[in-house]
């Protein structure tokens, strides 16, 4: 059956990640063409991705949690914790492969703690993750008091090398969570997760195991934080108990710009990725515009505000187009 072009256009406009994609593309083009002296070549993109992999992974994880109607502000502290544990293990002679597996398992376990407290103890997600953020940060400081340490040389050379001759290995750390998520999303369980986010009561009455969906989301978020932490550890080749602490709000903002609805049930991980890339480019732009040091933060925040306004306006429109979904705001 032939469909009119307008049909495809409408489908495109309903893509939740569209605003974030446009913002990213726009900032990319501005940096490439309007700012003189920028060479966007392979090494630039590689180092850009390397720097932002941790935030990207975090925003993938936090998207999953937000889709269930929750939130997770402990992922940054979890990244710090994973980083210092990995470094300490390697410095005490543990081979890097088991060290990284231990770190990933620990990250998933941490996510499970969040999920358990939210699902079974019924503490609101914001408060739970506020408390666990404190605990993770404290654990990180206990494991490593001062920044420092070294990691196995093979890790650094792997990370700074190339996959298949031209791809930066950091892409692996982003692709693995995305692939896992896509597989989950297509499974019946994935649909159930969206149902839980849309309307928890109705989902429960339909026989959906709400707790299991939530547990998956939080464990997945922990896993993503772990992956991001490992990537970051390879990149900086050292440990720092404060490594990821400032990244939480950025990951959440990126996910929201990426089209995810904070009430749950709407959005996808692609948006969060585009959002993070946009943020990285934004920092680049602010530096390149040679803005006065006391104006930088204000300008960045204002552009961010404009981006969020646009993203949410578009999202509200497309959500009402879809009809029947829980709406935000009164």
């Amino acid at each position: 059956m032939r469909r009119p072009l307008s049909y495809y256009l409408r489908k495109l406009l309903k893509w939740s990640a569209l605003p974030a994609f446009l913002l990213m593309a726009a900032s990319f083009l501005i940096v490439k063409y309007l700012i003189t002296g920028t060479n966007i070549n392979a090494s630039y993109i590689t180092s850009f991705l390397n720097t932002n992999t941790a935030v990207i992974c975090m925003s993938i994880g936090v998207t999953a949690v937000i889709l269930t109607g929750g939130i997770d502000i402990s992922l940054g502290a979890l990244v710090s914790l994973c980083n210092v544990v990995a470094v300490q293990l390697m410095m005490h002679g543990v081979h890097y492969l088991p060290a990284l597996i231990i770190v990933l398992l620990m990250a998933v376990a941490a996510g499970a703690v969040n999920g358990a407290v939210v699902s079974y103890l019924h503490v609101p997600p914001l408060l739970t993750t506020f408390a666990t953020q404190t605990v993770f940060a404290g654990l990180a400081l206990t494991v490593m008091r001062v920044p420092g340490g070294r990691i196995a040389g093979e890790c650094t050379s792997f990370y700074y090398g190339k996959l298949f001759g031209f791809l930066p290995p950091t892409i692996l750390f982003i692709l693995v969570p995305v692939v896992i998520w896509k597989i989950y999303r297509r499974s019946p369980e994935g649909t159930r997760l969206y149902a839980v986010g849309c309307d928890e009561g109705k989902a429960f009455l339909s026989g959906i195991n709400v707790e299991r969906c939530r547990m998956f989301a939080y464990c997945f978020a922990g896993f993503c934080a772990g992956m991001g932490a490992i990537a970051y550890t390879f990149y900086v080749s050292a440990g720092d108990p404060d490594l990821g602490n400032s990244l939480d709000m950025r990951a959440i903002s990126a996910a929201v710009i990426g089209g995810v609805s904070l009430s749950g049930g709407y959005g996808d991980v692609a948006g969060g990725i585009f959002g993070c890339l946009f943020f990285g480019m934004l920092t680049n732009m602010i530096v390149s515009f040679k803005v006065n040091v006391f104006t930088q933060n204000l300008l960045e925040a204002l552009i961010l505000l404009a981006g969020v306004l646009m993203a949410i306006a578009v999202r509200n429109r497309s959500m009402s187009l879809k009809g029947g979904l829980k709406r935000e705001g009164q």
Partner: peptide, 12 residues
């Protein structure tokens, strides 16, 4: 104290 931002800035 935001390392990611500093790396982004210095790269630029």
């Amino acid at each position: 104290a935001d390392l990611t931002e500093q790396i982004n800035q210095c790269t630029a």
